[in-house]
Simulated assay, not measured.
Amino acid sequence: MIHRFSVGDLSCAVISDGQPEPPWEPPLAEFFTPGSGVPEAELSDAVAREGAGRATLTCGYNCVCVETPAGPAVIDTGLGRRFLGYGPGITPLVGRLGDGLAEAGFPASGPVAVVFTHLHEDHIRGAVWSGEPTFPEAVAFAHAAEVVFWSDLTTALPEEQRRPALEAIRLFGERLRPVEYGVEILPHVHTVEAAGHTPGHTAILLRSRGERLLCVGDTFYDPLQLARPAWRTPWDHDAARSVASRRRILEWAADERLPVHAYHMPFPGLGLVERRGDGFAWRPLPY
C-alpha cells in the first residue's frame, strides 16, 4: 500500500511494510495491561464505550519516505522480510518496504538516509534484515541516547530485545550518526523530543513552505490511548516520561492543527488530533 502526498515542496509517500489482518491483529490486552497501569476492567469499559466492541489493535507498519533536497530519506523501515518473531503466519504479511519504494518511484539505489524514531525491532529490521545493510549507501540517524542505551550491555534487557538494535548499530557502523533533539538533520527534517517510550525516542518534523507533518513514531498506538494519554504499554521504558511526552505532543498537535503521522495507526497513519474533554481524539485524513 502506498499513499503519496506533499508537505510544501517535499514529495512524500507513506509505504506500508505490512498491515496484519485478523487473525493476526494483536489483542488490545497485550498493549494495555495491568502491569503497565491499565486495569482489565478499565480497558473492557473503554472498548465497550469507544472501541465499537473490537478486541484487537489494527497495528500497521507505516514508513514515511520523503524527497529532501539532499536526496530521498526513509523514516523507520518496518519489520523486513523473513520475520518470524511473531510466528510464521505473519511472515508473508510484512517486509513490503523495498517493493513499495520501487513502486513509488524512488531510486533503485535506495534512500540516501534512514531516520529512526527509535531502535525497536519493528522500526529498524527493514534496514538490516538480511544481515547486510538493505540500503548500502544510506547514512542513518538516531538519537544519541538511543544508541548509548542499546549499546550498554550492562542494561538488564532480554537478549531478543537488544539483538536487533545491536545489529543495526553494527551494520551501519560509522554511517550511524547520533543526533540530539531540536536539530535539522536533513534539509526540512527536524528532530523533536519524544523520549519515554525509549530513552532516545524521537519525533520527526517535516517543514516546508509553511506546511508541516509531525511523525510521532510510537508516541501512541491506538485511538483509545489518545482519549487516555496516561495509558502506557509494556514497551515504554520510562513510564512517567512517556506519558509526559505523549500529552505534550498531543497538546501541540491539537492546538496548532498540526498534521500527524502515527506509525502504528491504520494505513496510512495520517490524521489530526482534536481535544475531547480531558483527552484527545484521532481524525484520520482522507487518502
Rank of each mutant, 00 (worst) to 15 (best):
A227D: 12
A227R: 15
A227V: 00
R228A: 15
R228P: 13
R228N: 15
R228I: 03
P229S: 03
P229Q: 00
P229T: 01
P229N: 05
P229W: 00
P229G: 02
P229M: 01
P229F: 00
A230F: 07
A230S: 13
A230D: 14
W231D: 06
R232C: 14
R232P: 07
R232V: 12
T233S: 10
T233D: 05
T233G: 05
P234Q: 04
P234R: 04
P234T: 04
P234K: 10
W235G: 13
W235F: 14
W235K: 15
W235I: 09
D236K: 10
D236Q: 12
H237I: 12
H237D: 08
H237S: 07
H237Y: 11
D238G: 05
D238H: 11
D238C: 06
A239I: 02
A239Y: 03
A239N: 02
R241N: 13
S242H: 05
S242C: 09
V243E: 15
V243A: 11
V243N: 08
V243R: 07
V243K: 06
S245T: 01
R246A: 03
R246D: 04
R247F: 05
R248Q: 10
R248G: 04
I249G: 10
I249Q: 10
I249N: 09
I249H: 08
I249M: 13
I249C: 11
L250H: 01
L250C: 03
L250Y: 02
E251F: 15
E251D: 15
E251V: 10
E251Q: 13
W252Q: 08
W252F: 14
W252V: 08
W252Y: 12
W252D: 10
W252G: 10
A253T: 00
A253I: 00
A253S: 12
A254L: 03
A254I: 00
D255M: 04
D255Y: 02
E256W: 14
E256D: 09
E256G: 09
E256R: 12
R257Q: 13
R257E: 15
R257F: 10
L258D: 06
L258S: 09
P259N: 10
P259F: 09
P259A: 06
V260M: 13
V260S: 06
A262M: 03
H264N: 14
H264C: 12
H264E: 04
H264Y: 11
M265W: 07
P266T: 00
P266E: 02
P266F: 00
